[in-house]
Design a protein around this nucleic acid. Structure first.
Lengths: 347, 347
DNA sequence: GTGAAAGCGCTAACAG
DNA sequence: CTGTTAGCGCTTTCAC
């Protein structure tokens, strides 16, 4: 490894001078500056970031902690965050907590011990730990991503999940549907509750009530794939009912579940969208590949990721002065072919 | 930040003693040890890894560099590497080079300046840079992932792509197909050439030759989605031919392309697998969600990722003594419903 | 303008 | 067994 020392020796100056030209410090003689620079080039010297960080109390490193990477929504975030961070001169250290609070804590800890300048965290969602809770063992700037709570202690970036529910509801209503069902996912997740609330409220506004039996609180653990949850949901909605009592529209709380729903409906010779309309959630690339292409609600992932980085950097820069922002991004309805007009005589 | 100094003061010992109990150094008096430990607990002291790394010349950090994260094969790798590294006491810094050689170089550099203990790299594939080439600006242990070249300078882990080609060919032959086509992807990528060679050889063994017109060298840039490439391939194979001259079996060089092929075939009222059999490549989760579920060839991603980490750690440990291993993993044929027996009278 | 010296938090050699 | 000292590579006073 070539160090400042080597450069200094070659240039015939002191170490601190080298440091000065490196940091573009004022007042270095033009001649010495040139000397040093040519020595740097000749030796191909690159400042060591660890030593820099130890001294300067800034590592130019941010940490990203995600539940996992398999779902596309997560891996996209990871990529977008890396890209943005990189653009801003930061590197990214990545951790995956697999929804295990212990692991999450461990990662936060590890990152701090590595002197990260800040952390972007999508918290485990089983435990509804508050931001205050988190703040307890976090002493670096932090941005909370994708969870449905606001905080006056740190920045947060999330989707407007309530709005997503409204959008799904309105789309169904506009198409003339009256008997509408949905999957809710695990109700202990705040953001899923919000979506459900939005959905419900959106329907209520048009005097449609959604019965308890038409809400499938499918579990979401990593053992049960989303597709299977979708198939199960269809069982709940259809089994033991007369055909005329089938819902004609179903909103799934994510695209994988929607795919499962469509799959199961097909198997039962129920057509999508002629007999039943389906809306998904997330706008994964696969939604455009299945038959029929899925109407779904997209999250502006790139913006959200970019925003998270920007907020974090602001937080890093402003320190105590930073006034926490709680950003909620607009979801977007993407209409494809899994939704259609309600027609009475079909079912 | 609480440091060793604080612990030392509270425990009434010297800094080095604290360091000793931390590192489980031999010969520390039982009593002092207990003192120090309780002080550590009381202050909730956590050793700073940056300072440790600067001194000990080991950061317990590895770097992972991937082309991108959007394709599932990549994000899975990232997750598996993180998990394995974490299990082994390492953290992971992640970079994405988007197939830009400049960016790749920059990342390697940045990681080294951060004193990573080693790097796992999936190189950009446009430029056929050799491992020697890479070695030039890399002075930490490195494992090459997923590229089809061996190296006597560093470890490599890759799929046996030739074998994958053989497998696809044999499956088609076994089903009775004679007129067989495939997509080859960009031919400047060695691993894709290998797949094609395997495919060709597998067919040749059964006296089947694949004509140039039945090989679609679709481009793979990030502008053209795989699905579109697949649709284009179908055009090449079918347009301007008599129906009886259609190939009855197509191997796609990845699942997305396969999906595009199936989509286009459906649009032309050609049935899969009754009229045309399709095999994909990669075994992405979506393969089980489309209709018909896709027969494909899977890579043992978890094993490959785990192996990469293990090799890298071995390389880190053994240093100069490490004898580079070039691992080739077996692909696996996953038979679903997009392939069927050839029957003459169908088309 | 530039060098010498101190120190970031930690480990390791050397004395005692 | 334990404290003192030096030093990892860098920045930053403080003198000159």
């Amino acid at each position: 490894m070539v160090t400042q020392k080597d450069v200094a020796k070659l240039a015939g100056v002191s170490i601190s001078t080298v440091s000065r030209v490196l940091n573009g410090s004022s007042l270095v003689d033009g001649e010495t500056k040139k000397n040093v620079e040519s020595a740097i080039k000749k030796l191909n010297y690159k400042p060591n970031l660890v030593a820099y960080g130890l001294r300067a109390k800034s590592s130019k490193l941010i940490g990203l902690i995600l539940p996992e990477l398999v779902h596309q929504a997560y891996s996209m975030i990871a990529q977008y965050v890396e890209t943005r961070a990189s653009d801003k001169g930061y590197s990214m250290i990545l951790g995956v907590h697999r929804n295990d609070p212990e692991c999450e804590k461990w990662l936060i800890d590890d990152f701090q011990r590595r002197n990260v300048d800040g952390i972007i965290l999508q918290p485990v969602h089983d435990e509804p730990h508050t931001s205050a809770n988190l703040k307890e063992y976090t002493r670096v700037p932090m941005v909370l991503y994708g969870q449905s709570f606001s905080s006056d202690q740190m920045g947060t970036v999330q989707l407007d999940n309530y709005k997503a529910g409204i959008m799904a509801a309105e789309h169904f209503v506009k198409l003339g549907h009256r008997h509408i069902a949905c999957t809710a996912g695990p109700i202990n997740m705040e953001y899923l509750r919000e979506r459900l609330n939005g959905f419900r409220d959106g329907l209520t506004k048009h005097n449609i009530v959604i019965s308890q039996q038409d809400i499938c609180a499918c579990e979401l653990n990593y053992q049960v794939p989303g597709v299977v949850s979708g198939q199960r949901a269809v069982m709940q909605f259809l089994d033991g009912r007369d055909r005329k009592d089938y819902p004609t529209a179903i909103w799934a709380h994510n695209d994988l579940v929607a795919v499962g729903i469509i799959k199961e409906l097909h198997q039962r010779k129920i057509r999508v969208p002629e007999d039943v309309s389906v809306i998904g959630m997330d706008n994964m690339v696969l939604t455009d590949m299945i038959y029929p292409p899925l109407t779904t609600i997209g999250q502006p992932l790139e913006q959200m990721a970019t925003m998270s980085v920007d907020i974090l950097l602001k937080e890093i820069e402003l320190k105590e002065q930073y006034v926490p922002e709680n950003i909620r991004m607009e979801p977007q309805l993407i209409i494809r072919q899994s939704t259609g007009k309600y027609s009475e005589n079909v079912i």
